[in-house]
Nucleic acid binder design. Structure first.
Length: 429
RNA sequence: GCGGCUAUAGUUCAGUGGCAGAACGCCUGUCUGUGGCACAGGAUGUCGAGGGUUCGAUCCCCUCUAGCCGCCCCA
């Protein structure tokens, strides 16, 4: 049997209804905040991710689906292409390519779509997964650097999770400062680690040498007291970074968005500057992040574009749905308004005609089959529709149909001309 | 990429070196235009794939594949 490739999966009904519910709710919220949809290609130049996400990140160094595209002519060189592992780089590439900065306007863009990373699958982590994300980007003159943008995005996310009915989420945030701030902090941290690293776990000893900031992510219990004594990045921030962060926090306080400052929150992608954040949720296991994001003031320039500060996030749609399922908030199975049961195959044609009539009036109709015995029609209808219309010779002749409402068990005679109106009434009546 | 656990009916899961099981679901009948209940009957299947040991393997061994959990990292 041919199975879906490792780390990919089929989404089947009724789960697809839940996915659609999530996407519809998300689009509503984006609309309220005046975000507009962008759709970028599923694959891009490998170079985009190498430069944008960072050559040394795990994503780029070992998790990308990359291939050499065929050359169009003998003389042409092949091009290295990659299935997108995230979408921010693509959006910024598009921003640069279409010179959206020249509009002078702030661009508020959102996307929903599949991303690809070649990782070992587990709960909440798949090789093809869907992210819902948004980016606020533009020239500084459009206010793209304002701490209000950070606060607005965070407030929107809090609203979004609440709208979806997700309870118990937690917002953690931090500021990693400018690139210069981070470089300075790296030195401070490296010096501090020299004294204590020998008593830490082997992973930390490796990290201390390669990427000291990652030591903060260590989860080994014995290392925690040591990490608590290390200098925090907040003390290495310059005046501007500090003021920016203070204003973000003040705006969040004013909007009553609850948050926790986490000095250890350092995100994995190279492009993050200043504000970084994560919304987490228990019950997701080791993959507890529902979404993550931050500011990326230098990304456009890293990709050869104009200065275009921005802030954005990516939300794991799979994880969102998992969380909703865990909360038993599964989308209720949507039943058809009526099931038409023709009594005998000679009535099949008349049944199709009736179905067409009702469907054209906006009703959701399931069409049965005249070869079914009435008992079977009832059994099938009860699972798929709120009501069943019996269409026999009598009904066809008289034009008065028999309608059974399952919730009440009441059977009613309804003239064909009044059928559509009757079916629109709540099924509890 | 590394480590641990798992894979049996449509689903959830028992089970045994010697005929493949339960529950739910499904189909049929009692019941030719009135279901849900009940009763009676029925089909479930390459026991994840391939190889090995054995008279004989769903069971033991090896390899692979996939899922789950953890590490790494991330959404």
């Amino acid at each position: 049997m041919i199975k879906s490739p490792r780390g990919t999966r089929d989404l089947l009904p009724p789960d697809t209804a839940l996915w659609n519910f999530v996407e519809a709710a998300v689009r509503d919220v984006f609309r309220a905040y005046n975000f507009h949809e962008i759709r970028t290609p599923i694959f891009e130049s490998t170079e985009l991710f190498a430069r944008g996400v960072g050559e040394e990140t795990d994503i780029v160094s070992k998790e990308m689906y990359t291939w050499e595209d065929r050359a169009r002519a003998q003389s042409e060189k092949t091009q290295s292409l990659t299935l997108r592992p995230e979408n921010t780089a693509g959006v910024v590439r598009s921003y640069i390519e279409h010179q959206l900065g020249e509009t002078g306007q702030l661009q508020k863009l959102f996307y929903i779509g599949p991303q690809f990373r070649r990782e070992r699958p587990q709960k909440g982590r798949y090789r093809q997964f869907s992210q819902i994300g948004a980016e606020v980007i533009g020239p500084p003159s459009a206010g793209s650097e304002s701490p209000l943008r950070d606060a607005e995005v965070l407030e929107m996310l809090a609203t979004l999770l609440n709208e979806l009915g997700i309870t118990g989420w937690k917002l953690e945030l931090n500021s990693v400062g400018s690139a210069a701030d981070r470089a300075r902090y790296n030195e401070v941290l490296r010096t501090a680690l020299d004294a204590v690293v020998s008593s830490m776990c082997v992973d930390c000893q490796r990290r201390a040498a390669t990427n000291p900031i990652r030591v903060l992510d260590c989860k080994v219990p014995a290392d925690q007291p040591i990490i608590d004594t290390l200098p925090v990045i907040a003390d290495s921030l310059n005046e501007a970074s500090r003021a920016h962060f203070a204003q973000v926090l003040a705006a969040l306080d004013a909007a009553a968005v609850p948050y926790t400052r986490n000095h250890r929150l350092v995100r994995g992608l190279d492009y993050y500057t200043r504000t970084t954040f994560e919304f987490t949720h228990g019950g997701l296991g080791a993959q507890n992040a529902l979404l993550g994001g931050g500011r990326y003031d230098g990304l456009s320039e890293m990709l050869g574009g104009p200065r275009a500060p921005g802030i954005g996030f990516a939300m794991g749609e799979d994880r969102l749905v998992l969380t909703l399922l865990a909360q038993e908030a599964a989308a209720p199975q949507v039943l058809a308004d009526a099931y038409i049961a023709p009594l005998g195959e000679s009535l099949n044609a008349a049944a199709l005609s009736l179905a067409r009539e009702l469907r054209s009036q906006g009703l959701r109709i399931e069409l049965g089959d005249g070869s079914f015995r009435l008992k079977k029609s009832f059994e099938v209808a009860d699972k798929t529709a709120r009501r069943m219309i019996i269409l026999g010779e009598d009904e066809l002749q008289s034009g008065i149909l028999t309608v059974k409402t399952f919730a009440t068990g009441i059977q009613t005679k309804v003239p064909r001309t009044e059928l559509a109106v009757f079916l629109t009434k709540p099924a509890s009546e």
